[in-house]
Design a protein around this nucleic acid. Sequence first.
DNA 1: CGTCTTTGACCGGCGC
DNA 2: GCGCCGGTCAAAGACG
Length: 530
Amino acid sequence: MFRFPVSLGGSCDNTKQSQPSDEQQHRVVMDEVDFFRSAEKRDRVSSDEQNVITDEAHRVNVKRENSRVDDHDNRSTDINIGLNLLTANTGSDESMVDDGLSVDMEEKRTKSENAQLKEELKKVLEENQRLKEMLNQTTINFNSMQMQLVSAMRQQEDHHHLATTEGKDKANQRHEAPEIVPRQFIDLGLPSADVTSEERNTVRSGSPPSLLENSNSRQSGKRLLAREESPETESNGWGSPNKIPKHLHPSSSGNGDGSSNIGANAIDRAAAEATMRKARVSVRARSEAPMLSDGCQWRKYGQKMAKGNPCPRAYYRCTMAVGCPVRKQVQRCAEDRSILITTYEGNHNHPLPPAAMTMASTTTAAASMLLSGSTMSSQDGLMNPTNLLARTMLPCSSSMATISASAPFPTITLDLTESSTNGNNPANNNPLMQFSQRSGFSQLDQSGLPQMMGQALYYNQQQSKFSGLQIPSQTMNAGESVSAATAAIAANPNFAAALAAAITSIINGSNNHQSGNNNNSNVATSDNRQ
DNA sequence: CGTCTTTGACCGGCGC
DNA sequence: GCGCCGGTCAAAGACG
């Protein structure tokens, strides 16, 4: 079974006392070198192709070098420059051997150049830092704008609902709903570390497992005790999938009664919790590997022969943190064994490394969208997820995402098998990046942003402690993509324009399909909460 | 020796 | 009540 070359994040790192081997370090270095090489190519393509060395081009070169140094801040920052200068000196020394009078001058000149370069490096470092800050600020602004956009769209939806239905109470309840839906997303997507336990128990719907503890007390005490000391494992609800629909029905009917908001909300919340625990995101992708590389560490805990499929189904549990409730099933498609079906359930209760954020944020968003309908009337619950994914997220390919209504638990399937198999671009090897690029936010690709950029980068901000982590470069296309996206953003002066275009596109798209509002609503509100 | 995988047994839900 | 099925457990073995 595949093993990640480096231990990532969470308590695992703390306990294991990360001691990357030389090989690992070397691997990372090589990876980043490759990364910047590709970035360099981009720069070259985007910048003047002429051979004239302009000041602009010179600055770009220096910046690249600086970036490299900056990303390896623990290593000597003088290495690169020093080597270059040494090489130059050596050459000059050799050429000047016969000219002894020039040696001193040459040394002086070299020193002055060295000092000059250092000064320049310093400036570039400062500029790099400033760009990073700008990037962070831009990301925050983007999240803020996204939030406002979703809020506006939601209001539009409310108006639309009021016009078409006479459920005034329902409408009133809706106005309060935004506070619930967002939390739903937060709980889904964000590691719960920041949230207080009180908030979790009182506010959250569909939260990380630990929060669901209480609601699961109804389950057999025997199992509860038997399973690994983590109640969270129990809370994810993976084990008893068939209870959800039962919870859902009463809640959906309860929504109709707007007179008792508290009671209805409680029921809603319970239903949302139950649903959240059951929600699954299935990713279909072509892969020869036994398992999708999603940046997380998984431990196999079971394997079964599923009915109707000659290929066994493997069960994995996230081991990045003790008690993380996230599990996944991996199975090959019976019809086409080159297709790997990975089904995720649960929410990580620990910070995620950048490499895992693409998958986590994507599946989280998908699950969130899927579940967003569960807090509404049954009619909406049936309608919204499909609309969200098929229309809002995937306006160009509605067949990419399908919702399983017949399953005992809500399951959303992201079909990434149609995509091209372009092996040159790392992003193309990553189904999620394919998903991102094909999604409605594909305009953001202009700046190298993944689909869930807002969230992913937001994670980066909130969990900056991961910034120094080594990404399992061997297979982590997602991590590379995120890093590449960040670099691309920093290097792309048109980011703001691209962002504006993307948001405009989203707005236009949502105007055409207002039913998809809930999707963004979750995203926006989650940002709002943080 | 610790960690991980394998695999048969076990459990609970559901349909008949 | 019984059998089927999906999901999980946990002992045993493999591996580094």
